[in-house]
Amino acid sequence: MVSHELTATPLMSRVWQRHTLAQKLSRLSLWLLIGVAVLLSLSSISVIWEFLWDAPEQMADMGSRMWPLDFPYYPATVHAALLETFHIATLGTLFSMVLALPLAILAAHNITPHAGLNLFAKTMLVASRSVNSLVWALLFVAVFGPGPLAGTVAIACRSVGFVGKLLGEALEEVPRGSIEALKAAGATQGSQILYGYWPAVKPAFWSIMLLRWDINVRESSVLGLVGAGGLGMAMNAAIDLFQWDRVAVILLTIFAVVVIGEVVITYFRRKLI
């Protein structure tokens, strides 16, 4: 260091480089990659430009058809559909809880020290998460026929992966000390889970469930578009008949539900933490 300072380069010839050459190259190639991806997508995606330029006009037209809102439609149809959506979301969340608990335990390698079982559980969880709730709904409408049953099972199937993954990670982060103390006291596997793991992950568990419930309320409002019950079914009917004033009422209802949901969730989360 000292010798280096003595032989410092002459003042006027120093050029400042923000990055080294390797850094520059990797950054440049990343930007290039992003640029190429965007340009390729832009150039080959099928966009009918006339439709795009026409969009503001169409939106304005739609807006004018939405006004005035058809408020009497709410007590007539929307309210029942809203309750159905709420039931779908809540029941789906409860079912997913029942299914996710064993899978999360199987996926956590510190509770289930068996690589095969871990892999099996993790694959199930990934499969559940990768398939969208709307796709799940499509499948279950084919199985159970249209209606809220398909929606509930779809919500449950989609949520299992989410809850199971997060809960499994929470279980794996439980410090080993408290578990080893229980083991030393001769606790069985069952009581280790009940008295060692469960108290440690309880807050995380409830906050995951709340988060998922919040998401499920939003998601179940669209499941009806493929016939799985709830608000989406009412919306689909209104759109097919071009009753935009009714669509607007449904949109307003969804917005209100989301806002109320956010308030409720915030309240509960504050109580939990």
Partner: peptide
Amino acid sequence: DIEHAYQLLDVIG
């Protein structure tokens, strides 16, 4: 500015 900065870096060691 860059040269000024290098001079100051010399000053502050």
